Structures are given as structure tokens and as C-alpha cells.
Computed example of a mutant assay.
Amino acid sequence: MQIFLGILIFLGIFSIMEFMAWFTHKYVMHGFLWKLHADHHHKDHKSWFERNDAFFIFYAIVSMTCFYLWSYENVWYCLPIALGILAYGIAYFTVHDIFIHQRFKIFRNANNWYAKGVRRAHKMHHKHIGKEDGECFGMLVVPFKYFKK
């Protein structure tokens, strides 16, 4: 029973992270921490790293704290929480940083309907280089209007 509950917690946390990505992007990155996120929309430096990369640290700390609580404090449900946050972080990095922004030159030839829709939606978001008016959405769930044949 605990394994089944752990799988449900993992899937729930992974899904909640999609909401958290949308919420953080809309209200934090395009809100009071725009100064950290701005270089993601308008690169003003030559470094491979962006100030925007600092945002992953918050969720990494939450995940690491859950791993600690599971490992040293024997809080069993912290393991599926930590793994759900970690899995979403890996998925986000793969889709956003590797596939869309090509920070590593792989997945360049992916041209199925989902890949095209995600690219189109992200391109529309990056069309706005300012803090305002950028449509915000999650990483895995993007508005259906971007999936054209």
C-alpha cells in the first residue's frame, strides 16, 4: 500500500510542479524578480550561464531537503516528493534548456506535432522581451492553439 501511495504522491507532485512552473514564471519571474529573469528574454552578456539559471536553486533546495528528511529523519513520504520535484526538474531542463533553447545541440531534428507546438508557444512567449505582456504557460501543458498541423 505504501508503494502505491508513494507512486500517487510522485505523480501528484510532478503534476503540481507544472502549476508551480507557470505560477513562478508569471508572478515571480515576470514579477518582483524580473531582474534575474530578464536576461533570459534579452541576452545582455556573452556567458553560457544566465542570471535566470538561479531559479532552479530554490526547487533543488526543496528537493534536497525532502531527500534529507527521508534519509535521516525517516519521513517516508518525502522520498516520492523529492523524486517528483527532481523528475520535473529533469523534464523541464530537457524540454526548455536542451530542446527549445538548444543549450546543448541535441534534439534539433524533432519535428512531431508536440515538438512543433512547444517550440511555437515558447517562441510567442519570447516575442515579448519586456516584463509585461508575455503569455505564460507551463512546460508540458501549453495552450492547444499552438498545436497546428
Rank of each mutant, 00 (worst) to 15 (best):
H41V: 14
H42T: 03
H42D: 04
H42S: 08
K43G: 08
D44G: 14
D44Y: 13
D44M: 15
H45L: 10
K46C: 11
K46T: 14
K46V: 11
K46M: 12
W48N: 11
W48A: 14
W48K: 13
W48I: 15
E50S: 14
E50M: 15
R51F: 08
D53Q: 11
D53C: 09
D53I: 08
D53V: 07
D53G: 09
A54H: 11
A54Q: 12
A54P: 05
A54Y: 13
F55S: 07
F55E: 03
F56Y: 10
F56A: 13
I57D: 06
F58G: 15
F58S: 14
F58N: 09
Y59D: 10
Y59T: 12
Y59L: 13
A60W: 12
I61W: 07
I61N: 08
I61E: 03
S63N: 10
S63E: 10
M64H: 06
T65A: 12
T65H: 11
T65D: 02
T65R: 09
C66L: 12
F67N: 02
Y68E: 00
Y68C: 01
Y68V: 03
Y68G: 00
Y68D: 01
Y68K: 00
Y68Q: 00
L69Y: 14
L69P: 02
W70P: 05
S71Y: 09
S71E: 03
S71N: 04
S71L: 05
Y72D: 13
E73C: 11
E73I: 09
E73K: 15
E73W: 12
N74F: 05
N74C: 00
N74W: 05
N74S: 10
V75L: 12
Y77V: 05
Y77H: 06
Y77W: 15
C78I: 01
C78G: 01
L79E: 03
P80F: 06
P80Q: 08
P80V: 11
I81C: 07
A82E: 00
A82G: 09
A82R: 02
A82S: 10
A82Y: 03
L83E: 02
L83Q: 04
L83C: 08
L83M: 10
G84M: 06
I85K: 01
I85F: 01
L86C: 14
L86F: 14
L86T: 15
A87Q: 01
A87E: 00
A87L: 02
Y88F: 15
Y88K: 05
Y88W: 13
G89A: 09
I90V: 14
I90G: 08
A91S: 06
A91Q: 00
A91I: 04
A91E: 00
F93N: 04
F93D: 00
F93Q: 04
F93R: 02
F93T: 08
V95W: 01
V95K: 04
V95I: 13
H96E: 01
H96Q: 03
D97R: 10
I98A: 10
F99Y: 06
F99R: 02
F99A: 05
I100M: 06
H101P: 05
H101S: 04
H101Y: 04
